[in-house]
C-alpha cells in the first residue's frame, strides 16, 4: 500500500544526464529527444513516468490552468512515527515537490473544453492518499458538479497513506460518495490510470470513471506483486497487473498512448456531453485550436 515499493513499478522519469537508458529496450537515447517525445522511448514506445508539471503541460491548453486548494495541508493526526516521524516525511516531500500533498487539482481547458482536473504526484510519498488527497478530490467533484463540467483524474498512487491510519482508508469512501453525486448529475468522469495505480486508490475512484483508460504498461492492481507471488505460490505472468493484463481481462476500457491522450480525452468528452449536432466540430487532431463556440469557463 502506501509508500513506494522499490521492487515494483517502472523506472522514474528520465534523469538530468544527457543520455537516458530505456529500462525496457535498454537502448540509449538523448534525454532531450525522449522529452520531446513526451517522455516516451523513441525506440520502443516505453512510457516513462512524468511529473505533475509535465502531465499538465501535456494535457491542458496553454494558459488555461487554474489550480485550486493549493494551500490545503495536513498536520499529524495520529502522531505517527516509524523510522521517522510523519511530519518530517511530509516536510521532506513538501520541500522537494514545492506542494503540500500528493494531488494537484484545478480547472483548465482541454482542446478548449473546460474540465476539472486532478493530477496525482507519485513523487510525493508514493502518491499516497491521506485526508488532503481525499478532501481535494471530493471537493473537485463537487465544484465540477456545480459548474456542470466534466472531471478527469490522472491517477498515480501506491494506495492509502499508512501514516494517517484509518483516516486514509475512509477517504476511499469520501471520494466515492462525491463521485456518486457527480455521476447522478450525468456529467462525465474519466479516470486515467497511470503508472502505478495500486491499493486503496485503485480500489476506489480509479475504477469509478465512466471510462477508465490507461497508459501503456501502467502497473494497476490491489495487492503488491511480491505479496501475490508469496500468497499464490506460483510464477506470475510477466505482464501481471500491467495495463495490457487488465485490458485482456476486461477490467479497463482502453489503453491510450501518451501522444494520443489529449485528443482522445477531448473527443470522448465531446461525444458524451454533446452527443448531437456536433459532427465535424469536435477536435480532430492533438494540435486542434479552439474553433468551438459557446464555452465559458
Amino acid at each position: 500500500m502506501a509508500e513506494r515499493e522499490p521492487t515494483t513499478g517502472a523506472a522514474p522519469a528520465p534523469s538530468d544526464d544527457i543520455w537516458t537508458k530505456c529500462p525496457s529496450c535498454k537502448e540509449m537515447a538523448f534525454r532531450k529527444e525522449v522529452e520531446r517525445n513526451l517522455n516516451v522511448c523513441p525506440k520502443c514506445g516505453y512510457h516513462f513516468r512524468v511529473t505533475v508539471a509535465q502531465r499538465l503541460s501535456l494535457g491542458v491548453d496553454r494558459g488555461t490552468w487554474r489550480e485550486l486548494m493549493a494551500e490545503m495541508a495536513i498536520g499529524d493526526p495520529l502522531g505517527f512515527v516509524d523510522s521517522k516521524p510523519y511530519p518530517a516525511r511530509l516536510e521532506q516531500a513538501r520541500a522537494s515537490s514545492g506542494r503540500n500533498d500528493a494531488v494537484v487539482v484545478g480547472i483548465g481547458k482541454i482542446e478548449n473544453q473546460p474540465v476539472a482536473i486532478g493530477v496525482m504526484d507519485f513523487e510525493f510519498m508514493g502518491g499516497s492518499m491521506g485526508v488532503v488527497v481525499g478532501e481535494k478530490l471530493a471537493r473537485l467533484f463537487d465544484i465540477a458538479r456545480e459548474r456542470k463540467i466534466p472531471v478527469i483524474v490522472f491517477v498515480a498512487s501506491g494506495g492509502a497513506r499508512m501514516q494517517e491510519g484509518a483516516l486514509s482508508l475512509m477517504q476511499m469512501a469520501k471520494v466515492s460518495a462525491a463521485i456518486a453525486r457527480f455521476r447522478d448529475a450525468r456529467l462525465p468522469y474519466i479516470s486515467v490510470l497511470c503508472d502505478p495505480t495500486t491499493g486503496g486508490v485503485a480500489a476506489s475512484f480509479a475504477m469509478l470513471g465512466d471510462l477508465n483508460i490507461s497508459e501503456p504498461g501502467a502497473l494497476i492492481g490491489f495487492a503488491g506483486r511480491r505479496v501475490t507471488e508469496q500468497t499464490s505460490n506460483q510464477q506470475l505472468p510477466d505482464d501481471f497487473q500491467r495495463a495490457e493484463f487488465l485490458l485482456a481481462h476486461g477490467m479497463i476500457d482502453a489503453i491510450v498512448p501518451r501522444h494520443q491522450m489529449r485528443f482522445t480525452l477531448a473527443r470522448i468528452l465531446t461525444m458524451l456531453t454533446r452527443p448531437r449536432g456536433n459532427r465535424g466540430a469536435g477536435p480532430v487532431a492533438s494540435k486542434g485550436k479552439g474553433k468551438r463556440s459557446g464555452e465559458v469557463s
Binding site: V52, A53, E67, A70, E71, A73, R99, N100, G106, V131
Partner: peptide, 10 residues
C-alpha cells in the same frame, strides 16, 4: 485535521 500551508501554484 486539515490546515493551510502556503504553496506555489503549479
Amino acid at each position: 485535521y486539515l490546515t493551510r500551508v502556503s504553496a506555489e501554484s503549479d
